[in-house]
Amino acid sequence: MSVNMKVNIAGVEWNNPVTVASGTFGSGAEYSDFVDLNKIGAVTTKGVANVPWPGNPTPRIAETYGGMINAIGLQNPGIDLFVKRDIPFLREYKDTKIIVNVCGKSTEDYCEVVERLASEDVDMLEINISCPNVKEGGIAFGQDPKAVEAITKEMKKRAKQPVIMKLSPNVTNIAEMAKAAEAGGADALSLINTLTGMKIDIHRRAFAVANKTGGLSGPAIKPVAVRMVYQVAQAVNVPIIGMGGIMCAEDAIEFMMAGANAVSIGTANFHNPNVTLEVIEGMKKFCEKNGVKDINELVGCVK
């Protein structure tokens, strides 16, 4: 039985519903030793700002039970080098879509990057208004519905590509944020970013990451993410890219049944660099076994 794995996210057709979570995959170059990037539905890049950012002091990560905490601090080369080096590299992979994750410290920063990307050959933009690890910008935009709507509008005014707003789980009511992004004109939503967490090294009597707090990711957060994807799917009509602790095909299917049109794999890349391809294969097998002719049939099938 052949299964249709193609999905359409805000007018962009992906060959399958799997992308990678921003920050876990660089711009793909390092993983291309292990993964044929052409086989992934889309590559979502590490966040890129208007200028290079050095990121946070080390240690930047700590492992936790079934997860990890990171506070990289959005180290990135800035849009100039990114445009010159990373986009041409990714464009070589004709079958995969390019989603550029955009970060900033102010509305102007975001606007500058989005304007620069308007003339670039990339398929979608993901706006990171939910990074818990930078003091200014990032999450400051993502925890107030008015701010979410306002920045979404600014992005939409300037963007030539469909705009995905990436939502933070560190809010009381994520559906409210999702509605605000939709009201601002978002073409799609992605969720969830990491949950703010903390780990203390009891032997050193010190914080495990230098930033004190960091973003918790991995299978430990998956049930929270599935719940939030479900809540957002009930609240909005735009496509959803679901993520948070996906380790295997079954996890990805679960997100789709909760209402995600596509999924992102993040922390699992660290555990298994081949995981994206294994998830895609596993999703196809699940459909074959269960008589599902089109993967899109699964989206939101659990009400």
């Binding site: 390092e30 030793d33 050095p54 990121g55 990560i61 990289i72 080369p77 660290f270 660099p273």
Partner: peptide
């Protein structure tokens, strides 16, 4: 402390005298 081990996640950086070719910082 490392996560990916292959240069993608930027967890294990150290301060260098010259600009690095990855991020230029």
């Amino acid at each position: 402390k490392m996560a990916c081990g292959i240069g993608a996640c930027l967890a294990c950086v150290c301060k260098s005298k010259d600009k690095d070719h990855h991020t230029n910082v």
